[in-house]
Design a binder for these strands. Structure first.
Lengths: 234, 234
DNA sequence: GACGTTTTAGACAATGGCGTCTAGTTTTAC
DNA sequence: GTAAAACTAGACGCCATTGTCTAAAACGTC
């Protein structure tokens, strides 16, 4: 309990930017401990230890445990939001080489938004404390998955308009796209582990291939020898 | 906190089968409270109140909080396992009317294994306490999703062998099948709500339609006027 | 180098939960 | 109907945690 220290805390050995560094260190540590122990199980003393900060300093910045908790959630959400925004700006815009571009996008999405620390934290949190803090849940829903599927939906519409995809319901397709992207990672993600780059790549490729088989436009037939084989063997 | 009572507890007002009824009542109540509050947040007193049982009775049946917790998990897992087994036995075996049969299967699966109390409990649990009790997690992984995807994989292989489906990797397809089946329910499920029958039906239909578009055999072309429209409009 | 602010370490009361114990009641079994 | 077993209600000690308080130390700024 005493020997854990986040990266931010480690950087803060001696006043890198005073008050602000402490705050960040506390938020990092709190996110870590809250994520591991849940709200009830997390103790301020442990957070203080992880943050390499005295307990009083925490109470100095945040009135009480719940205040700290809310602050942590907002912090993580903001970070995740920024990341999501930057992800959305890397949407593939051209339709040539669609498969590779979509695959790369799924890899980035999973790596930076789903499988990283913040994604894990938020998912866990929403499941455990979502009922206790409904407005928090609502906020996550709108700013996280909501924004993602909306944006994805728009992208798919664009691609369909170009003729690269054939889609009847863009919202459904967007949700399915995300679901397929996670299909192979569910276990790893639930376990809390971080998938390797190779796993990410493979998962994304599987997802996109299936997605394109279902929604690919007339030009996306890339006949796969395996498939023909399977078809023949029946 | 005092006015909550599970169905089992309510039935137990006066000794329906003595010791056994109490046990069930305790397990039900504990599952409820553990699910709501997490391990650390759940108090024995509250569980006792929900179960309409004195605290001593709980300690009489289970040595300590953790013993009770483990017992609850095993109980829920057993129930879920039985349910899953009964689900697997209703696998569609014929390949005619495949779409409707698969849809009905997805509806049943989601309703009875994913969206019900036990499914919610186990998912929450694995996320929050999975790291604290790794063997528990492993057990869930093997008996729950593991068994499901294995069985699904076998089913898909059977259908592919008949020529109803064209699949290159059965395991991947099985995971994708499950993922697609949940795609439209993620939010409802995370929120803890129970989707309506209509939602279930719609979600399953979307999932199966996409799955068949990707993996449907040569005979599954059911040309959709919407699609043609979208394809033309490009 | 001095002053004001921030941080620290630790003591402190208050709270609440866990697990034990006891004495009295109800239920079950014979 | 009686004896054994199970259950109840409540008191109890113990411990961890929260949040406050204080005196000393470290820090930043001028």
């Amino acid at each position: 309990m005493k020997d854990r220290m986040t990266a931010a805390a480690r950087m803060t050995g001696h006043t890198q930017r005073g008050q602000c560094a402490k705050r960040m260190s506390i938020l990092d540590a709190a996110a870590d401990v809250f994520c591991r122990e849940g709200f009830a199980g997390a103790s301020i003393d442990e957070i203080a230890a992880v943050a390499c900060v005295s307990r009083q300093t925490i109470y100095n910045h945040y009135r009480e445990k719940e205040t700290l908790f809310i602050a942590v959630v907002e912090d993580v959400m903001n970070r995740a939001n920024t990341m999501l925004f930057s992800m959305l700006s890397t949407f593939p815009d051209s339709a040539d080489n669609l498969e590779d571009e979509l695959t790369a996008f799924v890899v980035r999405l999973n790596k930076n938004c789903i499988c990283n620390h913040d994604g894990k934290f938020l998912r866990k949190l929403v499941q455990t404390e979502g009922e206790r803090y409904p407005h928090l849940f609502e906020s996550w829903r709108q700013h996280g998955p909501g924004k993602l599927t909306t944006a994805l939906s728009a992208l798919l519409a664009r691609l369909a308009h170009k003729g690269a995809l054939v889609i009847d319901d863009f919202d459904v397709a967007a949700r399915q796209f995300v679901a397929l992207g996670n299909a192979d990672l569910q276990m790893t993600v639930l376990f809390g582990g971080v998938p390797t780059d190779e796993e990410l790549e493979r998962a994304a490729r599987n997802a996109v291939r299936t997605f394109l088989k279902a929604y690919g436009g007339p030009g996306a037939e890339k006949t796969d020898p395996q498939l023909q084989l399977a078809a023949v063997s029946s």
